[in-house]
Nucleic acid binder design. Structure first.
Length: 154
DNA sequence: GCCAACGTTGGC
DNA sequence: GCCAACGTTGGC
């Protein structure tokens, strides 16, 4: 089992939205960065856990945990001309953008703020703190447990 | 294949 | 709203 971090802008889709979604699940669609896509397609497996991170907001932070429930899904938004994420280069025969489905596991209290993570030497190698723009990124087992020791699932 | 121009992300 | 970092595009 591996650990990941998924970024989302809460103004578009926050952790609360995942908890309210049907079956507490959603398709992680709209990723249009090749490195993030490759992680979604090649590295993430069903049952993996991921931090749900709120970006581009007042208090950037890890706010919850989700679990991967499906993988290898052709991103339907790429086929939809009405979608912001439409990509005519992707078609059903040869889908270019592959995504996953995730399920809410738990909110975290307290949330783990980016500014506190920056101060934590145990987290200095976290991808989040070094390659901050990558929207799907790995978290080491050590980092995962270090962060979970500072908060509680609620 | 290089790299300048340009677009996007996301913290502040 | 600014701007640094960095990804993508496209001319050569």
């Amino acid at each position: 089992m591996n650990y990941w971090l998924l970024k989302s802008e809460p103004s578009a889709f926050g952790y609360e939205d995942l908890e309210r979604a049907p079956d507490r699940r959603t398709l992680w669609d709209g990723v249009r960065n090749y490195q993030a896509r490759n992680i979604l397609r090649d590295d993430i497996t069903v049952g993996d856990l991921a931090f749900f991170y709120h970006s581009a907001c007042k208090e950037p932070a890890i706010v919850g945990i989700c679990r991967v429930t499906r993988t290898g899904i052709a991103d339907p938004s790429a086929f939809d001309p009405a979608s912001d994420y439409y990509d005519p280069a992707s078609d059903g025969e040869n889908p270019k953008w592959i995504t996953i489905e995730v399920e809410a596991v738990s909110a975290l209290r307290p949330i783990i703020k980016l500014k506190d993570m920056r101060q934590d030497s145990a987290l200095k190698d976290m991808v989040l703190l070094n390659r901050s723009r990558l929207s799907v990124q790995p978290v080491s087992e050590t980092e995962w447990h270090h962060i979970m020791a500072q908060t509680k699932a609620v």
